[in-house]
Amino acid sequence: MAARMIVNVTVTLKNGVLDPQGRAIAAALKGLGFDGVADARVGKLIVLDVAEGTSRETIEYMAKQLLANTVIENFRIEMP
């Protein structure tokens, strides 16, 4: 089997896009007594198992084509 590598793509809501889920989490944390929590934002981590040598451009293309909806989301790629 050809060599593989793991790429992490983190998808988060853009700043300014209301995140009701995050807001509910922040409120719940405050309810648990964590007074210092001002806000929480919820994102997704997508772990890709791809052929070693797959280019960053290809991963970016995957992210724009499917993994993130760039109307409302940003993405960050971490490669080995």
Binding site: V17, L18, P20, Q21, A24, N69, V71, I72
Partner: peptide, 10 residues
Amino acid sequence: PGALMRNAGL
């Protein structure tokens, strides 16, 4: 255009 997100009231 645009996107449909989780309802504001969850």
